[in-house]
């Protein structure tokens, strides 16, 4: 077993990854609660936004700030468009059908990205905060890592407060409980759902940008990084934002803290699956599990 000092450098890396998974997880859970859609295209939308930002900076020489804002906005608009067209058409269908439809969107975007941004080219996004940081003991911490964790915390708390105190947030929570009754009470269901799609999309754009910097700017990797997010959301049973945040941080930390342990480091990819399965089995003790909205009963 490596010494404690060997694990230390992986703590900020794991926390940063966990912070971005939390950001994505919050977006995914909020959308699921409001619309019943488990958005598997979350990573693909973020990836495309990040690649657009990369092209804007490197091909069209647009200032970084505008490119990054475009990335976030692309996430919001693309997700909103999907929600307005397919979200409505599939509103009455089973959650599994809705989730599968978003997988279709993910694969479509992946095809487009592979065509427009071929994988052979080396690309990267480096945020201005990459070049500075500080040391905690012998461990160097980059400001982007701090931003990732901080953004995850702020978005989790901010979203929870938003859902509790604002009118539209209350409407989203009502939709999560019962869509039909909420509609009969006069809540503008479509407008509320549109807000959920757009907000969730903005988070996918922000997460895509941060992951492009912290992990990699590759369409395939960013598309399928949704697995980490999905695991965190499932551990939270697609309900609790706080549990989603904690699960995301734990997944990010465990995945990275395994890295220096030579005997198991090559099995790190299993981390989200193992943690999600363990959590689901734990929560499902003596209960009936259903994929439908409502989860475990």
């Amino acid at each position: 077993m490596p010494s404690w000092s060997s694990f230390q450098p992986f703590i900020p890396i794991g926390l940063a990854a966990g912070g971005v998974y939390a950001l994505s997880g919050v977006g995914m859970v909020v959308l699921y609660r409001a619309t019943g859609v488990l958005n598997l295209a979350f990573g693909a939308v973020g990836a495309m936004g990040a690649l657009i930002a990369w092209s804007m900076i490197n091909t069209w020489h647009v200032p970084g700030g505008i490119a990054y804002a475009t990335c976030v906005l692309f996430g919001g608009v693309a997700t909103l468009l999907y929600g307005m067209v397919f979200g409505r058409l599939l509103a009455a269908r089973d959650p599994l059908v809705k989730a599968a439809a978003t997988l279709g969107l993910a694969l479509l975007l992946l095809g487009v990205m592979n065509r427009l941004w071929p994988a052979q080219v080396t690309r990267s996004i480096s945020l201005p905060t990459d070049s500075s940081g500080f040391n905690v003991g012998s461990v160097s911490v980059v400001w982007t890592q701090v931003i990732a964790v901080g953004f995850g915390i702020v978005m989790t708390i901010g979203t929870a407060v938003f859902l509790r105190v604002t009118k539209i947030g209350t409407a989203m929570r009502a939709l999560a409980d019962d869509r039909e009754i909420t509609a009969t009470l006069g809540v503008p269901v479509r407008r509320v759902e549109a807000a959920a799609w757009f907000g969730s999309g903005l988070l996918s754009g922000a997460a895509g940008l941060l992951l492009a910097d912290l992990v990699t700017l590759a369409s395939d990797a960013l598309t399928f990084i949704v697995i980490f997010t999905l695991s965190a959301a499932l551990i939270a049973r697609l309900r609790s934002l706080a549990v989603t945040f904690v699960a995301s941080i734990v997944i990010g930390l465990v995945d990275n803290l395994i890295a220096p342990i030579t005997s198991i480091t090559n099995f790190r990819d299993m981390t989200p699956f193992v943690l999600a399965v363990a959590a689901l089995l734990f929560f499902a003790r003596g209960r009936q599990y259903s994929f439908a909205r409502g989860g475990i009963r």
Binding site: F10, I13, T216, A221, F224
Partner: peptide, 9 residues
């Protein structure tokens, strides 16, 4: 896993 590598890790 080259498809989902974290460069820093």
């Amino acid at each position: 896993n080259a498809a989902s590598i974290n460069g820093e890790t």
